[in-house]
Nucleic acid binder design. Sequence first.
DNA 1: CAAGACAATTATGTCGACACTTTTATTTTA
DNA 2: TAAAATAAAAGTGTCGACATAATTGTCTTG
Lengths: 234, 234
Amino acid sequence: MTTLSNETSPLSAPLTDRIFDLLQDSIIKGEIPAGSKISEPELAKAYGVSRGTLREALSRLEERHLIVRSPNHGARVISFSYEELIDTYQIREVLGGLACSLAAQNMTGDEIGELRRLLDEHEKSIEEDHGLSYYQKEGELDFHYRILQGSRNKKLLVILDGGLYQLIRMYRYQFSTASPRPYLALKEHRRIVDAIEERDSELADLLMRRHIRTARINVEERHKNAMTKGADKG
Amino acid sequence: MTTLSNETSPLSAPLTDRIFDLLQDSIIKGEIPAGSKISEPELAKAYGVSRGTLREALSRLEERHLIVRSPNHGARVISFSYEELIDTYQIREVLGGLACSLAAQNMTGDEIGELRRLLDEHEKSIEEDHGLSYYQKEGELDFHYRILQGSRNKKLLVILDGGLYQLIRMYRYQFSTASPRPYLALKEHRRIVDAIEERDSELADLLMRRHIRTARINVEERHKNAMTKGADKG
DNA sequence: CAAGACAATTATGTCGACACTTTTATTTTA
DNA sequence: TAAAATAAAAGTGTCGACATAATTGTCTTG
């Protein structure tokens, strides 16, 4: 059971919307490889829709920066630059902190309770499969998503959930490189919930920032290793 | 002379892109009123393009949350909620701070010089027309935009310039309510540049946050007054 | 055989048309 | 006359087609 906002559009929704969802998911999961060129006729045929319908979806994807289009040359899936990932983490750090600080002010007791329950679930999930699958890939974002909702700031939700998280999910899928420290992360999560429960927004902000910073540094380390170890082409 | 990133797409660009730019501008400036319904056939005719072309632009506008679409009912220009504006300012506060702190680390001496020159221009502009026109509507965002570029964080640029600033511009146009304290703002800007020049990223962050917070509080005050004074309908 | 010119193919940009929904106008009926 | 039923109009969702630009493949020529 997931609570991630990735509500795939219902079957009653316009075709364009469903195509958009499908495409976005495919891109994030790497089923359409990063950097690959997109052929409109081909895709349209694959999904069984007209090119016009597809193009509307592509326009939205472009606006989300999941694809890049150049006039008369077609669209490509974004190719993943390490720098951009780090950029994303930097932003996530301050926005995550803000979300948390607001959540400490605005979340209801019930919501906080649910948050705790979610963390318990995560703990079980980690124990069961040694922290290898769901939790690390999606579950953690689930936690962040709840806090985001608790912040009561709609714009925050749009920016993080509608844009930044996607990138991070994409990164995790493509390098299958989920957090190598699930228990530690869980502990940090628990501390954050504590701060929220105590309505200590300043502390909540600080803990969340630190949590995300740690994750970023982790990525940076991993990258450094990959650089010295693998062939450094490019 | 402006430096705002609102580069209107060249005449060689695909029609869709130009329509998108035109529409976005019209919405922001209130030429297409907030909350008004959009008729595809009508708009298409007005701009002399086919509906398909227009719809691609609308899809992008929707993704930018400048319009809202509901299936089979058409699109409406977003209507401006005070809460969302405040939400936006909260986000801008932390992101502006981040941008500034990064700018202090990454901006070149030349760029800082240009920033100073820009502020001198602004000062002149304020003196000339008593701070009534350009500077307050667009010029200030110009300043922020430079810093954004100096941060070297592309994602930041996308989020702020491509999303949040629009909302603030829209608000300013529609309530023609530019900063009532141009000289003070200018002073704050100068201090920020000082901090950047001294490579004091912590101070730069703090000053920028405070600057934006002040602007937000200003909006809040204005809103309170409007509430107690005007008829409180709704 | 390599390099450039030309032809054929494919892809993108843009349009007009049709089906089905929603809204508006009109007519019927209580 | 007001409300319900029905018809007309307008609007959105989706498609297929054509023009033009880009790419690929082929043929010429040095």
